[in-house]
Amino acid sequence: MAEFQVRSDAVDVEQIMRQIRARIREKRGADYTEQEIRELANVKLEKFLDPRGIRSNLVQEFRRNRVITPAPQTVGIGDVDVFGSPRPMLRSIRKLLSPILRLFFSPTPMVHAINTMQKQQNEVNAEFHRRFRQREEMDPLYYEVIHNLVVELTRLSIENQNLKMRVESLSSRMDFDERRARALETVVAYKPAPRPERIERPQPSAAPAVQTSSGDGQAAAAPAQTNQDPQRAGLEPRDQGERGERRRRRRRRRRPGQNMGQQGPGSNGQSNVQGSVQGPGSGSESGTFDGGRSDDGRSASDDGDSDE
């Protein structure tokens, strides 16, 4: 990831902004404008999936507003209906005069035709009603399915957003760690030291000598332990033994008021290892250690120790 290059006090804000924009382009992948991004963010799907826009009482709302269609009425017609009337007097007059009317035309075929059409219409209505009722009975199920789908989609959308945020958060943390590591690497001053010749350590046959000199058996125990699982640390057993020794030596050196040449009487027994392996003048190695690491990843003092 690109870093902000500030090589001197003479910074150029425009250049920094160019770096920032280049970095954004790199992150974004495609160079969308802010307007385009907003348009993408405001597509209808997002609105639909907006958790605040979901009505949690969708099914209840539907049930409340549900209307059951009544069954259609069947209507017939006959002679009585042709000359009938709700008013008795009018009905009597019509009945009285019906023979005269029938003298001019016959209403029976007309009534028959109307009745036939009505019958067919009733059948159609009944079929329509049956199907319509079926549909109405299915509607709550559809609504329920849609409701569940919306809820699930909303949940997924929220989860997706959370995951995105977590990824961004992790990404930024990783970015920060990476920068910090780089910054620390640049801050630490190198002290180039000539790479010492690698002296082969005595093979396990030499270990007892150290063990004898230490007197407590710990020095021998460490290599023995590392030998059990040499690949766990990715190191050779010999290297692990060396590192253990070096670590112990460094700890002793760091004790206040003590160094390789000035050890108190009480520490005499423990310093036998270092005393035996440290040559004259090696005490100055603690002065050369500046916290840096040599090219092969080992500290300068470690290299000095390897001379023994």
Binding site: F4, A10, V11, D12, V13, E14, I16, M17, I20, R21, R23, I24, K27, R28, E34, I37
Partner: peptide, 23 residues
């Protein structure tokens, strides 16, 4: 003023805002 002074950054969208805040 930010450019002439070399004493500030500026943003025109969220990405620039976030990067400038970080920087």
């Amino acid at each position: 003023q930010a450019i002439r002074s070399n004493a500030g950054l500026y943003y025109e969208n969220f990405e620039e805002f976030a990067e400038a805040m970080y920087a």
